[in-house]
């Protein structure tokens, strides 16, 4: 991507990714029982308008290749184990970003016999992105925030 003027945020995003993870950040998406609104917004990040690949960020097919998990949905009973296994399979240091109201705090479904009501009840979460669903650019902001996070004290531990 050729650029005449690079905006501040663009620069910040690229430098963080470069510092922390070389020139690429690999993300695995985990649907833990969302309404698919957040999933489609995530998919929109890959469209030509947002083009997340230009920042060196990409979605990968396996959690084994991923540095970050983007989790949507409030974790249903049937997906609890799948989320745990995906989390365990991701290579450390790993980051978890909870995307959307359901993932952050249960949203409108709340806690039911089939819904845990939040990703942080199952796996540790680094960044919460509220919104129902959050706009694609808001998800991007969450990713940026998580990258800053990795620099902190927890990075050595995880």
């Amino acid at each position: 991507m050729k650029s005449e003027q690079t905006t501040d945020i663009e620069l910040a995003l690229c430098t963080r990714i470069k510092q922390v993870l070389g020139s690429s950040l690999h993300i695995r998406h985990v649907d833990a029982g969302s309404c698919n609104g957040c999933d489609f917004e995530m998919m929109a990040l890959c469209n030509p308008v947002y083009d997340i690949q230009r920042f060196g960020i990409d979605f990968v097919a396996s959690p084994r290749h991923a540095d970050m998990l983007l989790v949507t949905g409030g974790v249903t009973r049937h997906l609890e184990m799948a989320l745990e296994k995906t989390y365990a399979a991701a290579a450390a240091p790993k980051m978890v970003v909870a995307v959307g109201s359901c993932a952050c705090g249960g949203g409108v479904c709340g806690q039911t016999y089939a819904n845990a009501g939040g990703v942080d009840k199952i796996v540790p979460v680094d960044v919460f992105v509220p919104g129902c669903p959050p706009r694609p650019s808001a998800i991007l902001e969450g990713i940026l925030l998580a990258l800053d996070k990795l620099d902190g004290s927890r990075s050595a531990v995880r």
């Binding site: 029982g33 409030g74 249903t76 049937h78 819904n115």
Partner: peptide, 8 residues
């Protein structure tokens, strides 16, 4: 898998 129990 995404059964959230919305009807309940």
């Amino acid at each position: 898998y995404t059964h959230r129990g919305l009807e309940k």
